[in-house]
Design a protein around this nucleic acid. Structure first.
Lengths: 350, 350
DNA sequence: TTGAAAGCGCTAACAA
DNA sequence: TTGTTAGCGCTTTCAA
């Protein structure tokens, strides 16, 4: 079998506790002892049994990240950022995929796996304030990501959705666009990224004294490229007139742009497009895609930090914190004033 | 504290062992006993402590997936497929990112985390046969993914790189292209996806009686969109003439296509492009990108199955297995014979 | 079909 | 600064 603490202790001529102290960087150890132990560890190739440590200490050094899927670039890039943040703080990340399925979103919160991790970062698409009971049953530290479940008693990290959508819309208005589509709305009655972004869109129109036209609000329940393409195709077929699109995420925008190109609609001249998320792909599309960058790194770092604080304890009496990451308007060709190709070093490709 | 097996046992009026049997679906249990235990579990909200189980049984129910990063769509989609395959077999996946860093690729193989998991799926970019010593030190079951380390004593799942590249090249040759770029070559002296794909490219040229022109082999060390764009820009600036591109992955192809579009090069008329990986994004680019689909799902399912077999044991005397997944040539607009736009339901968007 | 006893490898609490 | 004792919650082994 694998070597244990005791094997090391025997070889080094010390007690198991001393070896444990060395392994855990306990400060008060005589240098000579430490070196002897370290030598024994190296000689035997000892590596601690994390299950035993976890059982004894109640800590596993692992956190869960629950997200819909990894095929979606936004979540893949978010997961990447979370893993780097966690790694720097000595934590491993166990990813669990809800598949955007409501039942599974709830199920994962109840699963046994959640007893094996120290904390969880949870990003739901469907679970909302009406499911608070499930959320409150979670006994380990949990930090919420995204827009759902605003009333849960947990720390919560999210972007400034409304302000971001407003900035995006104002950007198009400043370009002189008058018929701007809100692309990717959801059912209006629940708080979600979609409803917050729609509110920002409306606020921008109101502030500019523009009329809100419901015909320009396009519902797209799923925010993928495919869904964006289908919805845009339908919109064009219906003959709706528009000269700008605020897409509620980049994937939707990219799907829509593909259809606009097929139909020979010039971007940004005939239709200017801006998305949300700043996924890498948007830098290389044609035209490159203007977007609202949500502050992904900041979200990841903040979420992991808040979670670690809760895991460490000592903040039990601190009420739920809500952190809003800073967004940034990224201007690319899809909302440029000069036509595509005028600047051959376009986008940030160069 | 959380409820334990004993709490359940006490409430149900049975021994801990019986509860354990129920939890683990041990077959020979009287129905009445089982129901009583189940009721007690439900009443107390009992969930097993995975650390304790892991300590006792030597199994954690977790496997590691070591990949370069998640910003790269290929790996994100691969990870997604692996997680689904693992989930169906009751395993959780702990992802570790090597960042495409050679030292870290080795370090992760030695880490303590690898003692806490039952097995590992390992995809290296840099570690090769010259690092066999590190690989051989891994004591838990390990299945290799990708092209590196062909001589390691492990099961290995990969795509048919050479055949795939040959099919891609032959596809362009059939289109009448005569000056085809091999885009994304690496140092020739090591076995890698790049060298295998280059071999396939050469084989296709040879079979067609075409001359191999080293000027058409373009080295691009990193396979990202950005790198593809930079390399293509350089190539155009150098004035190399070509009418086809076999890009060694889709990201490279997409980066190159962006530059070709900027420069007004018509695709596929002036330059036909085909990539590798079949990432989702290629369906929505303009033109949509023809590609070699590597059989990602098959790779994921097979790798997880092989790993589980090794974990379960009983195959210790079975020599290392090598599985080659089936690839598929996916024809899209970037190698279509009719010009883009002729078919408005282009790509598989519709 | 069920129970009793033992102990996986580690660290917390305390003692020396 | 280091050692001793105990036990985390579970499953394995063996017995009944």
């Amino acid at each position: 079998m694998a070597t244990t603490l005791h094997d090391v202790a025997k070889l080094a001529g010390v007690s198991a506790k001393t070896v444990s102290n060395v392994v855990n960087d306990y400060p008060h150890i005589k240098q000579a002892t430490k070196e002897r132990v370290l030598a024994a560890i190296a000689e035997l190739g000892y590596r601690p049994n994390l299950s035993a440590r976890g059982l004894r200490s109640g800590r596993s050094g692992v956190i869960s990240l629950i997200i819909p899927d990894l095929r979606n670039s936004y979540f893949a890039e978010l997961a990447d950022a979370v893993m780097h943040a966690a790694d720097q703080l000595g934590l491993s990340v166990l990813i669990e995929l809800s598949g955007g399925d409501r039942a599974r979103e709830a199920e994962l919160l109840r699963g046994a796996r959640l007893r094996a991790v120290d904390g969880v970062l949870y990003s739901a698409l469907h679970l909302g304030d009406e499911d608070l009971a499930v959320v409150e049953e979670v006994t380990i530290p949990m930090v919420l990501l995204g827009e759902r479940m605003f009333n849960a008693p947990n720390d919560h990290v999210t972007m400034r959705n409304t302000e971001g959508a407003r900035a995006a819309t104002e950007h198009l208005i400043a370009l002189g666009r008058t018929r701007i589509v809100a692309f990717g709305a959801h059912r209006a009655d629940i708080v979600s990224s979609a409803s917050l972004r729609l509110a920002g869109y409306r606020a921008a129109l109101d502030a500019a004294g523009m009329v809100f036209d419901p015909a320009l609000v396009r519902e797209v329940p799923v925010w993928g490229r495919f869904d964006g393409a289908v919805a845009m195709r339908a919109m064009l077929d219906e003959g709706v007139a528009f000269d700008g699109i605020v897409a509620f995420n980049d994937a939707l925008a990219l799907g829509a742009m593909r259809v606009l190109s097929e139909r020979g609609v010039a971007m940004p001249d005939e239709v200017a497009v801006i998305g949300f998320d700043d996924i890498d792909e948007g830098r290389y599309s044609l035209p490159s895609l203007s977007t609202i960058a949500p502050g992904r790194e900041q979200i990841a770092r903040t979420a992991v930090s808040l979670l670690i604080e809760r895991i460490a304890g000592g903040v039990d009496d601190v009420p739920p914190r809500r952190v809003y990451a800073d967004f940034e308007l990224v201007r690319r060709e899809s909302t440029a004033t000069s036509p595509v190709g005028a600047d051959s070093s376009a986008a940030d490709v160069s």
